[in-house]
Amino acid sequence: MTEQENHEAYWRENIKLVFLCLAIWFIVSFGFGVLLVEQLNAIRMGGFKLGFWFAQQGSIYTFLALIFFYVHQMNKLDKKYNVND
């Protein structure tokens, strides 16, 4: 594999990972927190209606987990394609 092909393969995997993360990002915020909030509010979690909880708490926790997951995966990817800094 030439260096350029290696870089392109690295970039494709990176894009795939970003798409996966952003899909989850979209679902918990725009999906659970805005578009589906009424349906989810029918479900209770302790004192919270679930849609309300996602909008004010759950989405933020998911964002955090997502970034650290992405950091971890990217560090692995950097090593795999030998492009780490």
């Binding site: 927190g33 805005v34 909008a55 992405y70």
Partner: peptide, 26 residues
């Protein structure tokens, strides 16, 4: 703002934190 708007203010919470996902990845 949250105290007086309730659920409607959630967009500020999500918007101002969700932007960091975009920053980190894009």
């Amino acid at each position: 703002l949250i105290a007086f708007l309730g659920y409607d203010a959630s967009v500020y919470l999500m918007g101002w934190t969700g932007g960091y996902v975009l920053l980190a990845m894009l």
